[in-house]
């Protein structure tokens, strides 16, 4: 049995988690694999300001920080922001894959330049920051939004007829005007559009969530994980403190709600 922890970056209810779990249906997974989708204890409600980014880093860090002790073989982070990835890598020896950096690098195995399809305008600064920090500015043709406010629980459900063609049109502009040779879906929450876009665009479309499962499979098969030189363990771990903090955050949210 190989157990994979998939951290869902919002404190979603069961229905919301099921919409995320549907991603595992797009790719065949090895026999004996079990994917466990775990929402964060508490965290931001939107994802468009540094306030949100900082909270999400901590939320995902807390949700995954005992994954190795809990018996998981690898961790996937279900967001293109790679929130919490660096911190988790510093406390875990098992592979930790965020969808963002990995999908951009994977896109470059398929073509020379990629564009990122973003949900709406307020999401753009976060992508630009990540691309600059990863040093992929030369390889990124563009980041364009299809101007649809995100729904982190229901995703694109019920909006297919309206939104999918608009996504295709924006992606075509990435290809024709910006020179994109591969399209990266800008969020794991867009997974429902992956097959439609792959069938209606002339370039490959990277669906980031399912990709992380297959990359984990690759790393486990090859015995590879992140280097401890790049992600040094803490001198004095305070994971118990982190756990208590996020529990208090969740209680505060419940009291408010």
């Amino acid at each position: 049995m190989t157990r994979i922890l998939v951290i869902v970056p919002f404190a979603l209810d069961e229905a919301g988690i099921r919409n995320r779990e549907a991603q595992s249906g797009y790719v065949p997974l090895p026999a004996g694999w079990q994917l466990t989708y775990r929402p964060v204890t508490c965290g931001p409600t939107s994802f468009m300001s540094p306030h949100d980014w900082g909270l999400m880093d901590m939320a995902i860090f807390e949700a995954g920080c005992t994954a190795e002790k809990d018996g998981f073989d690898a961790v996937c982070i279900d967001t293109m922001s790679d929130s919490g990835m660096q911190a988790l890598r510093s406390v875990l020896r098992i592979p930790v894959i965020g969808a963002g950096k990995a999908s951009m690098l994977y896109a470059l195995t398929l073509g020379g330049k990629f564009s990122v399809l973003a949900q709406w305008e307020p999401a753009l600064p976060r992508y630009r920051k990540a691309i600059r920090e990863y040093g992929f500015e030369r390889q990124c043709a563009s980041v364009r939004s299809f101007d649809q406010p995100p729904d982190f629980a229901n995703l694109l459900d019920g909006k297919e007829d309206k939104v999918f063609p608009r996504m295709r049109d924006v992606a075509m502009r990435c290809i024709e005007e910006d020179g994109a040779e591969v399209i990266c879906l800008g969020s794991t929450t867009m997974h429902q559009a992956g097959e439609y876009l792959a069938a209606n665009l002339p370039v490959p479309v990277v669906n980031p969530g399912p990709l992380t499962y297959k990359l984990v499979e690759t790393f486990l098969a090859l015995g590879l994980s992140h280097g401890r030189d790049a992600y040094a363990p803490p001198v004095e771990p305070r994971l118990d403190m982190l756990r208590a903090m996020m529990k208090a955050g969740a209680a505060a949210e419940a009291g408010r709600g």
Partner: peptide
């Protein structure tokens, strides 16, 4: 060995290189 595994996952992901690049 990395290429063998990447070939296997490319097939599972139904992805291949971009004809815009090649």
């Amino acid at each position: 060995p990395l290429t063998y595994k990447l070939a296997a996952i490319a097939l599972d992901l139904n992805l291949t290189h971009s004809k815009a690049t090649y």
